[in-house]
C-alpha cells in the first residue's frame, strides 16, 4: 500500500524543474509509504549509448566496481554517483557485456537500464531519500515516484518500487494483487526470473512478458485487466511517455491534473497541490479499467 506520483511534461520549458517538482510531490506522500521510496527520471539520452543504474552497499564499493567495469568493457565510463546508486553511461554495444559483469558481482546490483531512464530506490523515509538522491536537482521530461507501505513482502531495497520492466520501462503500484503467486509461476515457466516475493514485481514482469510477446504497452495493460486479480493502480513509465491503469473496482485512490504544460498523477490531491498552475489545471480521476497513456512525439 502506497503513495504514487507521476509527472509528464508536455513542453521542454519546465524540464530543468522536473526533479524539484517530483521531489515535492514525493515528499507529500511520505505518510502513505514510510518504508521505502523510489523514482525513475527520464533525462537526456545519447545516441548509441545506454544508461545503467546500479546500486551498491557504499560509495567506495560503487567506485571500485565501476573502475572494474570500465576495465572489463574497455571504455571510459561516464558516471554520476548519488547516495547508494550510480548511473553509468556506456556504449550500447557494451550493454550486454556490462550486464553480465554486474550480474556476477554480489555487492552491486542493476536497478534499471534505458536510453534515458535513471532509477533510484532505497529503504527509508521518502523525505530523506529524496534529499540523499538529490532528486530536486534532476532534469528530465517525465518521472514517476513511489512511497511504500509494505503489505506482505519484505521491506528491502529490491522490494522498493519502481520495478523496471525492460529497457526504459518501469512500473509503480498501489494496491495488492490477489493472484500474484499463480501468475509468477506462469511467468517463471515462460523463463522470467524474479528477485523478490513482491506482487508488483510480478505485475512488472507480466508487462515485460506481454511486450516481449509483441503487445504494445497499451495492449499489455488492457490484457492485465483480465490476468491480474486484486486491487491496483499502476503508473508505468516508458522512454517517451507514461500510462495509468486502475483495477475495475478502482479500489485505490488516484487523481490527475492536466495543463498545457504537464500531466501529473498523485494518489491524493495533496501531492499535486504545489504544482505551478494547479489552480487552472483540469483535475480528474482516471476511470476504472481504462488505460490512459501520454506520449511525447
Amino acid at each position: 500500500m502506497c503513495g504514487i506520483v507521476g509527472l509528464f511534461l508536455k513542453q521542454p520549458k519546465l524540464e530543468p524543474e522536473l526533479g524539484a517538482m517530483l521531489s515535492d510531490m514525493l515528499v507529500v506522500m511520505n505518510d502513505r509509504g514510510p518504508d521505502s521510496a523510489g523514482f525513475a527520471v527520464y533525462g537526456d539520452g545519447e545516441r548509441g549509448r545506454v544508461k545503467l543504474t546500479i546500486s551498491g552497499t557504499s560509495e567506495a564499493a560503487l567506485r571500485e566496481a565501476i573502475a572494474g567495469l570500465a576495465r572489463a568493457v574497455g571504455e571510459s565510463l561516464s558516471v554520476t554517483l548519488r547516495h547508494t546508486h550510480a548511473v553509468i553511461s556506456l556504449s550500447a554495444i557494451n550493454e550486454q557485456k556490462a550486464r553480465r559483469w554486474i550480474a556476477a558481482r554480489a555487492d552491486i546490483g542493476l536497478v534499471g537500464a534505458g536510453k534515458r531512464m535513471e532509477l533510484y530506490k532505497e529503504v527509508g523515509l521518502p523525505e530523506r531519500l529524496a534529499q540523499q538522491f538529490r532528486l530536486a536537482e534532476m532534469a528530465g521530461s517525465h518521472g514517476i515516484g513511489h512511497t511504500r507501505m509494505a503489505t506482505e513482502s519484505a521491506v528491502t531495497t529490491r522490494g522498493a518500487h519502481p520495478f523496471s520492466t525492460g529497457l526504459d520501462q518501469c512500473l509503480v503500484h498501489n494496491g495488492s494483487l490477489s493472484n500474484h503467486n499463480g501468475v509468477r509461476r506462469v511467468l517463471q515457466h515462460e523463463g522470467l526470473s524474479f528477485e523478490t516475493e513482491n506482487d508488483t514485481e510480478v505485475a512488472a514482469g507480466y508487462l515485460s512478458w506481454k511486450i516481449r510477446e509483441g503487445a504494445s504497452l497499451k495492449e499489455a495493460l488492457t490484457q492485465s485487466l483480465v490476468d491480474l486479480d486484486g486491487f491496483y493502480t499502476f503508473v508505468v513509465g516508458t522512454e517517451s511517455g507514461f500510462a495509468v491503469l486502475r483495477d475495475p473496482i478502482a479500489c485505490k485512490p488516484a487523481v490527475m491534473a492536466e495543463t498545457d504544460d504537464y500531466v501529473a498523477f498523485g494518489s491524493e490531491y495533496r501531492a499535486l497541490a504545489m504544482l505551478p498552475g494547479i489552480d487552472k489545471a483540469h483535475i480528474f480521476e482516471p476511470a476504472p479499467a481504462t488505460v490512459y497513456a501520454w506520449e511525447r512525439g
Binding site: 500500500m1 505518510d31 509509504g33 503489505t151 495488492s176 486491487f231 479500489c251 485505490k252
Partner: peptide, 8 residues
C-alpha cells in the same frame, strides 16, 4: 477507504 494507507 481500503488498505492501510487509507486507514491512516
Amino acid at each position: 477507504w481500503t488498505g492501510p494507507d487509507d486507514l491512516e
